[in-house]
Design a protein around this nucleic acid. Sequence first.
DNA 1: CTGAAAGCGCTAACAC
DNA 2: GTGTTAGCGCTTTCAG
Lengths: 345, 345
Amino acid sequence: MPTIYDVAKKAGVSSMTVSRVINGKRDVKPETREKVLKAIEEIGYVPNSLARSFVLQKTKTIGLVITDITNPFFTTLARGVEDTAMKNQFSVIFCNTDEDPEKELLYLEVLARKRIDGVILASASGKRAPLKSLLIKNIPTVLIDREIEGLDDLDVVKGDSVQGAYLLTKHLISLGHRRIGIIVGNRNISTAEDRVEGYKRALAESGIPEDESLVKFSQYSREGGYNSTKELLSLKNRPTAIFGGNNFIAIGALVAIREFELKVPDDIALVSFDDIESLSQVYPFLTVVTQPAYSMGVIAAELLIRRIEGRDKIEERRKVILQPELIVRESAGEKLAEGVRGEGR
Amino acid sequence: MPTIYDVAKKAGVSSMTVSRVINGKRDVKPETREKVLKAIEEIGYVPNSLARSFVLQKTKTIGLVITDITNPFFTTLARGVEDTAMKNQFSVIFCNTDEDPEKELLYLEVLARKRIDGVILASASGKRAPLKSLLIKNIPTVLIDREIEGLDDLDVVKGDSVQGAYLLTKHLISLGHRRIGIIVGNRNISTAEDRVEGYKRALAESGIPEDESLVKFSQYSREGGYNSTKELLSLKNRPTAIFGGNNFIAIGALVAIREFELKVPDDIALVSFDDIESLSQVYPFLTVVTQPAYSMGVIAAELLIRRIEGRDKIEERRKVILQPELIVRESAGEKLAEGVRGEGR
DNA sequence: CTGAAAGCGCTAACAC
DNA sequence: GTGTTAGCGCTTTCAG
């Protein structure tokens, strides 16, 4: 591989001049520039960003650490991150943790070694945050989708899970449901806690007593949804509605419901946090709350890049909370409110 | 950020000894090793892979260039790549080209500059392959999903599109369809050409004359599927079945069909190349041919990494063609073959 | 088993 | 406008 010196020799100039041409510095005589460009062309020189990053101490690369790129929510989010990164000449390294804190730590370590300029992290570590000590302190980081308790100085971009869950639950209540099961992810993931909180708030507001047997902290996965739904459906006093804590959970729930030979919404209502897009485009029946995943990615990337480039005057932490949207379709049923105090909306 | 020298000083050894400890070379006295480890711990030293990559001329990073991570087929494939990379201590930088050859070129250039160790590429460039000259010659590359005419020396991992399309078309024919519309991606993408070829082969075999008005080279996107379907449905002699060239096209087709107030499969049959997973899990009605996307990613990554590490004795090009699978559901209808010569299977 | 010297390709800082 | 020098943090080679 030719180096900047090969180009320099060929063009009869010094390496610095070549460097200046490559980086588009203005103080190069046009004719010299031409010579250099020609030499680059002829030799087939490709600048070595590795060397460049090494001396400049910046890599123009960010890490995106999520739980599973296979989840459409994260896919869309990732696309937002990538588009924005690209627009700013950043590359993105992506990492799937599968909700495994160990794996997350490993990835973070690798990224730190690679001296990436920043990280966007949807952490699987919940409150424990063993990463705290590691690198997060030194590497610009923005948390996305999920907060981490005890890391209060990091930027955050997330959806309003409490509000989303509140809306969804409220909607169910307005349709007459009083026994509502909810299935969310692992207990120390902030979205799981928040969604349950929103759910409980809605219940409380309508004077419906909490029933812990209806609240399942499970996994944000199809299995999680499937298993927990089976448990809920096996209750002697079965719920009339199920709140799927994310899209995967809703899919699992749907499968379990089918196994029980129940019909949605006639036999049981089902709603979901996060849409299942390919489903809704084709067969829009699931009532959901959606989050602007793409925007979330874009905003997080912009925030991060601004931090990296030091364009942000403000040192203090940013917290962006995006509002979810309730999309009423038919999976929650249309039954009229019966004996509900709710203001149904 | 502390360097290897800081550690060395602290531990009272030379930088070489630290280097050896970090890289797990065996020839270090246990006690010395301990000292070093302790120093690393105390200082909070994080090895700089950038410097390491720079001297070693390898980055332990590969590039994954696809058209759109948002397409579940590529998402799954990407996951296969990432899992495999991770298992081999490689990181992956991902790039979405949106089927734009310019963007592809740009990404490839960036990757080349970053001196990534290899590339997995689902090219948008079709036959023209302007990238040929660039870097592909120097950087280990495996083409995935799509071949590029004129780049016959690169490894390839792809599905058998001809066979898949043949199966799907054959299936439609066996159900009595004789006017079958097909919508695929851009003309110079190999999968588009191949799928049309398989389609035509099946028609020929059944003695059904080709009708070019039924063959749409469009885009592998929802819009592409939507627009082309509308065209097909507007034909005076409308087809009785539509073959969606990929999952996105099928979704677009479904939307268009709904707009025309037609029912699948009663009014029109629809089949798709590549499944729409979240749909099929919940509502399995679309008859499809699926490809093992995850395996494709895994195999491509393994191939690439073996190439990179020089573990492959064999220098010659590898071509892995994975077989698709026909999954018959109900969207093609069940009508009995009427006047078909077909051996229906 | 451990260390000293040199160099990977580039750019910042300064000279000319 | 352009060139020189030095050094980023690491590993390879060769000594000891």
